[in-house]
């Protein structure tokens, strides 16, 4: 096994004529917290989505836990996996969306236990017990039988985090998890993520919360126009940026 949880090598991706990823190389160590920053349109969300094959890459190789994502590597050829195998792979990667995407017709508990039962074939009793523990951990144990629309945005996002964790993923991906929240609800979601960071889960977080990045990140990655411009410990990238574009971005955001 490699010591990297996520390996991205030479990744290119275009939407029509627009090349949104123009050769990305990124290695993420096990148990590390990586925060990806960058102006909108820089390709950071697309990069995150390629990590669990929600977007197919045009060129390059992505590996999670040492296994190519979406493909089987044979010699110099990548053989497309079948949909069922891709779905199986995704259960090892938790994904938290900007808009939560909870299932509105299912209760909080049913949202959390759905995938472990149907995708991993685990025992319902065991999954329910785990779900209750997770919901307790993210602080919504009193809303177990509520429907998502009866919850605040912050509570919904915390349920979504519990739902992703229920699969016991090796890596958790967060796509701007607080961007759709009212300012006073941002803190409670960041608190939960911080807690995960402290427990040694491998996290990759796309966010605009610079203060949060400084606090939890082991590595900050700055992207612009489909390329990684700069990466390193938050102390280096945020306080002493080397690149002009990083400086320009930070000066705008930190005003």
């Amino acid at each position: 096994m490699t010591r990297y949880a996520v390996e991205v090598r030479g990744v290119h991706k275009s939407f029509g004529n627009l090349e949104v990823l123009r050769g990305i190389d990124l290695l993420i160590r096990r148990g590390e917290v990586t925060v990806i920053l960058g102006p909108s349109g820089s390709g950071k969300s697309t990069l995150l989505r390629t990590l669990n094959h929600l977007e197919k890459v045009d060129r390059g190789l992505i590996q999670v836990g040492g296994q190519p994502v979406g493909y089987r590597l044979k010699g110099s050829k990548l053989h497309e996996l079948r949909e069922r195998e891709i779905l199986q792979q995704r259960t090892r990667v938790g994904f938290v969306f900007q808009n939560f995407n909870l299932f509105p017709h299912l209760t909080v508990l049913d949202n959390v236990i759905e995938a472990p039962i149907s995708a991993q074939g685990r025992d319902r009793k065991e999954v329910e017990a785990q779900a209750r523990a997770l919901l307790d951990r993210v602080g919504v144990s009193d809303k177990i039988d509520a429907y998502p629309r009866q919850l605040s945005g912050g509570q919904q996002q915390r349920v979504a985090i519990a739902r992703a964790l229920a699969l016991r993923p090796a890596v958790m991906l967060f796509d701007e998890p607080t961007s759709a929240l009212d300012p006073e609800l941002v803190g409670e979601v960041l608190e939960v993520i911080k807690q995960l960071a402290g427990e040694g889960t491998t996290l990759v977080i796309v966010t605009h919360e610079i203060g949060f990045a400084r606090e939890v990140a082991d590595t900050v990655v700055f992207m612009d126009a489909g390329l990684i411009v700069e990466q390193g410990p938050p102390g280096d990238v945020l306080d002493n940026p080397q690149h002009e574009r990083t400086k320009a971005f930070l000066s705008k955001v930190l005003q």
Partner: peptide
């Protein structure tokens, strides 16, 4: 986003349709 969430959770295809 519902289909995307179901796919991201690895829920089997048929189940995505009938359950979600």
């Amino acid at each position: 986003g519902q289909l995307e969430a179901a796919a991201a959770l690895g829920i089997p295809r048929r189940r995505q349709f009938f359950r979600i």
